[in-house]
Amino acid sequence: DWLRQHVHPGDPLALRFDLQTAPETNLERALRPERANSSEAQSRQSIWNEVVQAVSGGPWLVHNGSTKIDGAEEGFNLKSFVDTRHPRTALGVCGDGEILLVTVDGRQPQSRGVTLKELAEVMAQLGAVEAINLDGGGSTTMWISGGYVNAPSDGAPRAVADALLVYANPTGQAGPSLAGTPDPSQQGPPNPPPISLQAGESVPIPAPSTVSAPGTVWGTLEGTAFVDQAGTLTAIHSGSGTAIASHSGAMLRIPFVVNPGPPAALHVSLGPAPNNPPDRSRLHISVVDRYGNGTPDVRVTVTVRSGTPDASQVLTGPNGRADVEIVWDRAQGAVQVTAGALSAHLQR
């Protein structure tokens, strides 16, 4: 409430963070015995004086070259978080100082996610001698060279307030020519026809041979689908999008359209009719594929006991939904809805 009264769009803000080092825990002493001496402990406070940016995470995954997950000690729920497969994000350091930024997709048919034990094993296999878990779940997102190279589990990138950014100076080396769809703001050849696929399908993206040049990064502009680094597109969410291939500042754009799969589930519910008359109800119908995408143009049959529907057959709209109004003869009644082999029953 105070912010709404005193801060307005466009007002400059100054943020202050007062960070203090907490006393070293027994776990920290066990993990870093070299820091247990008094001189080291005294220097811990001065470390924060030099911090310009910081990122938090946990639990540990790899320490001193061995997997070590301290989820229980740090208060993470073992059953729902540590030992359950989720999308994950991790940060690691190799013995030669190389930094590893790793994301693992999850909650999707093409990738179920990993437990923290499995994530620790991945980081160790990649060469990490130190690694820590960062914010995962629907926040697991990786963006490289102008596009998303993973498929966030929410179906689109989540609106989060923070990110870990890595910048690099341009090499100045000329890359291969990526002939294809240009930046819409630039003049050039017309857009190629979109790739069409059904939700759940994986299809190779037709592209010039130059796209296979070393250093090319595949991804999507919207983060609603997944393109592996061999150029194969996998999508489970219906709608349109853009696959991209980037190299040395050049970008090839390939539009695609994901169509819903065949009907897999029928959902129905009764709600009030407009103006809420006591003898009328609005029947809400939804037909979706196995991924929850609305399935259009599905013929639905409605049978009512102790009432009359305004239509006994309807087609679902573009979002897979349809509504039928029912006038009831009695206070109690029933509705039977069928769509092909799918059926649902409601009691009033």
Rank of each mutant, 00 (worst) to 15 (best):
P194G: 05
V302P: 00
A207M: 15
H345L: 13
D310G: 11
P318W: 00
R29T: 11
A322C: 09
L61F: 09
S153Q: 06
G127F: 00
P277K: 06
A156G: 07
P109K: 05
P59H: 01
W2Q: 13
V288L: 03
L165C: 15
G175N: 11
N77E: 14
D154Y: 10
R290E: 11
L266V: 02
A230C: 04
P184C: 08
D297S: 13
A14M: 13
R330D: 15
N169F: 10
A311R: 14
D11S: 01
A163P: 02
A341T: 05
G200W: 03
V104H: 13
P190R: 15
K79G: 10
P214K: 04
V93T: 01
M251G: 11
L116Y: 11
Q125G: 09
S196A: 09
N26K: 12
I47F: 05
H345Q: 15
L116Q: 04
R282A: 08
G95F: 00
G147C: 11
D183W: 09
N169W: 04
V211Y: 13
F76S: 02
D11A: 03
P182Y: 06
L126P: 00
T232H: 07
I285E: 12
L116A: 02
K79V: 10
N77Q: 14
R35K: 02
S66R: 14
P109A: 05
A54T: 02
T220Q: 03
